[in-house]
């Protein structure tokens, strides 16, 4: 089982949690937000999987982007306000093939590992 982290463990340990949470005008109080969005990081045979709890948001209200080798999540709606999270990615993540799925308020992001390029064997003739 692979134990390689996609990013520097120190960077991940200091995850940027909530950058901004604003509550727009609402008719009813929203649940008291937790100090940090609950998340879990797994190592998988294909790479890594990140799971983030985002209850109360539709798929269309969540934006996932890559910026400066960081995965940025932004969720926003009238009832819940805005939640921004950022996760630093390491060089081993294949950023062109990231998949995300939202199920029952949990966002699951699959981060594949870059394929290792096998060294090319060449025979060099001696002149």
């Amino acid at each position: 089982m692979r134990n390689i982290l996609p990013w520097n463990q120190g960077i991940f340990a200091d995850i940027n949690t909530i950058l901004n949470r604003t509550l727009s005008q609402i008719d009813t109080p929203v649940p008291t937000p937790s100090a940090t969005e609950k998340h879990a990081l797994y190592s998988t045979p294909q790479g890594w999987a990140l799971r983030v709890d985002l209850p109360g948001y539709e798929k269309s209200e969540i934006t996932i982007s890559l910026e400066d080798n960081a995965l940025k999540l932004s969720a926003a709606n009238e009832n819940r306000g805005t939640t921004d999270l950022s996760f630093a990615l390491g060089d081993e993540v294949e950023t062109t093939d990231i998949n995300a799925k939202l199920t029952n308020g949990v966002l699951e992001i699959l981060l594949p590992k870059k394929e290792e390029v096998a060294p090319e064997n060449k025979t060099i003739a001696v002149q």
Binding site: K38, A40, Y42, T44, T103
Partner: peptide
Amino acid sequence: KTELAQPDWQLISDSDIA
């Protein structure tokens, strides 16, 4: 809570997820 992790996944870290 439904466990989304596959059998061959290994937990690296979490924030005390319930």
